[in-house]
């Protein structure tokens, strides 16, 4: 564990808490893509299967439980309590276009051709693009509640911090994980446009609005 990764995980944890807080305080999941949230459940469940056969640390164990639990809780809230505030008509990204290619790529690029390793690769690739339905929804509506942008910013920071983590690990432990690094770079790249608007508008106290 190093500081970059710890802060990254903390940002990830914070993003989820911000999202749950947003839903409870505004009593709404407006502006949140159900598809993206469902993809995160798939990501966590397929990646953390190793809970059953690999022990890393107490930290790792509880974080995994939290990510699986909280992502399922968010889906549950979106399907029950806040269902009326959800608008499927604008959440129209076709996730088949993500699931299909990620499956194929995971079958080609993995560290071992075994079910759990293929699922691990799949989860890494899927995580890198899981935010797309959310960004697509944002693009369609052209604006977002400030709290929703904080959620996205925290998610982006989480991913961005994993990059110095990998550089640090390369020099201190000699660890290089090409699958995680490639997918991580793609994932971070997807946030660049969002971050530009976030920094130039939201952090200046303005509303998040995309140029027409």
């Amino acid at each position: 564990m190093n500081l970059f990764r710890f802060l990254g995980d903390t940002a990830h944890l914070a993003s989820i808490l911000v999202l749950i807080h947003k839903m409870h305080t505004t009593k709404s999941c407006r502006g949140i893509s159900f598809k993206t949230q469902a993809l995160y459940v798939a990501v966590f469940v397929t990646r953390y299967l190793d809970l059953f056969y690999r022990w890393v640390s107490l930290y790792n164990f509880f974080m995994k439980l939290f990510f699986i639990g909280s992502s399922c809780y968010i889906l549950f809230l979106m399907k029950t309590k806040f269902r009326p505030t959800q608008d499927p008509a604008i959440d129209t990204f076709r996730i088949e276009y993500l699931l299909g290619p990620c499956t194929v790529i995971a079958l080609i690029f993995n560290y071992k051709f075994s079910p759990t390793e293929i699922l691990w690769s799949f989860s890494i690739f899927l995580e890198s693009v899981a935010i797309l339905p959310q960004l697509f929804l944002l693009q369609r509506t052209g604006e977002a509640e400030t709290i929703t942008t904080h959620y996205l910013a925290a998610l982006g920071i989480y991913r961005a911090l994993y990059i110095p983590n990998w550089i640090y690990r390369y020099f201190t432990e000699g660890v290089v994980d090409p699958i995680a690094i490639t997918a991580g770079l793609v994932q971070t790249g997807l946030y660049i446009d969002f971050f530009y608007v976030y920094v130039t508008k939201v952090l200046q106290g303005q509303k998040f609005e995309l140029p027409a």
Binding site: R5, D9, H12, D50, R54, V56, S57, N60, M63, K64, F67, Y111, W120, Y162, N165, W166, R169, E173, G174, V175, V176, D177, P178, A180
Partner: peptide, 10 residues
């Protein structure tokens, strides 16, 4: 001896 997996990451 480079190690090629980060299975200890979240």
């Amino acid at each position: 001896t480079a190690q090629h997996t980060c299975h200890d990451e979240l």
